[in-house]
């Protein structure tokens, strides 16, 4: 039994790493279709990664060893964070490594090194990207925390496996607080994963870049790891949102059928999420950097309203 669970945890970890480029590819594909382009094939991100891993990695003369170590740290920290988010099954031993606050901490660690790596070469772009990234993430943090508080006040846990378990066992009730928390977390996720309208992952226009500006100097396998980590982060947030708020279908035992159902429902949910994201990215335009605080203030406000409606409407002792 124990061995099985550990094996399952390993499978989920590998699945995370493997699925991440696919999700990115899917979003690209849907976006291309929506914009009347033929677009690249869904599996293109895998080829890109393969190509990058085989290319020579280069480093600027001015870069230090930190520049070299950062991709490994960024990727591992993101993967570790992902390992604590239930993907197929709520029997996840690795979920105990990090509760949601520790997951946020791990993502912050990867962001820390990403920003430092951006500043390491000493070009203007790297510093600019790092400065902006730290601003966006700092403003996203309180919104995320208040939303997490709302969930934790109801479910009395911040362990994601227990949280999803709570959602599954509870009889169906309408919770205004969860709706607000979901909305807040969606906005936070958009900001944190650098999607439109906060950042545009496909631009290389100097003045609008955030994430791309930081990894501008990377090449070869270093760049591959950085890109992969970004895709992983997107998948992580997607799974977090879908599995916490719409946990239906996730496996509760270890039988093969329930795992298969878990996988199928996961894929269905991710496909749907990808479509929604692609539509929203097609109809929205990127905001100016200094509009982002208003965007994240809205997230914070939604989080606060969720927390207040929980306190006032749902408990009300």
């Amino acid at each position: 039994m124990n061995l099985q669970i550990s094996l399952l945890a390993l499978v989920q970890l590998v699945l995370y790493a493997l699925l991440a480029p696919l999700v990115a590819g899917w979003i690209h594909w849907v976006k291309a279709k929506l914009q009347n382009r033929c677009g690249a094939r869904i599996f293109q991100p895998y080829r890109d990664l393969y190509k990058l891993f085989n290319k020579e990695a280069r480093m600027a003369h001015t870069a230090s060893q930190l520049f070299r170590a950062s991709p490994y740290i960024v990727f591992t920290a993101t993967l570790l964070a992902a390992s604590a988010v239930p993907l197929l099954s709520i029997n996840l031993p690795t979920a105990a490594i990090a509760d949601i606050i520790a997951i946020a901490g791990l993502l912050a660690l990867s962001r820390f090194f990403l920003a430092l790596a951006g500043m390491d070469v000493g070009t203007a772009f790297g510093g600019m990207g790092a400065s902006r990234e730290m601003l966006v993430s700092a403003l996203a943090e309180p919104a995320m925390l208040v939303a997490v508080f709302t969930l934790a006040m109801t479910a009395h846990t911040t362990n994601l496996a227990s949280l999803v378990g709570f959602q599954l066992t509870e009889t169906f009730v309408l919770r205004p607080s969860f709706m607000f928390a979901l909305a807040a977390l969606v906005l936070v996720a958009i900001a944190e994963t650098g999607r439109i309208p906060v950042d545009n992952p496909s631009t290389h226009l100097e003045l609008t870049m955030i994430h791309e500006a930081m990894i501008l100097e990377y090449s070869g396998r270093h760049l591959a790891l950085m890109e992969w980590a970004a895709q992983l982060k997107l998948l992580l947030y997607g799974t977090l949102l879908t599995n916490v708020f719409f946990p239906w279908g996730i496996a509760q035992d270890l039988s093969l059928t329930s795992l298969a159902i878990g996988l199928l429902s996961l894929i269905a949910k991710l496909l749907l999420l990808g479509i929604i994201l692609a539509i929203s990215e097609t109809v929205l335009a990127k905001m100016r950097l200094f509009r982002t605080p208003a965007f994240l203030n809205l997230a914070l406000l939604l989080g606060l309203l969720g927390m207040l409606s929980h306190v006032i409407l749902e408990i009300g002792v």
Binding site: L174, P176, S177, L302, L305, L313, E314
Partner: peptide, 13 residues
């Protein structure tokens, strides 16, 4: 009443 709670919170929003 649950629906009403949701609607009331939306009014506040």
């Amino acid at each position: 009443q649950q629906i009403m709670l949701v609607l009331a919170s939306m009014v506040l929003l």
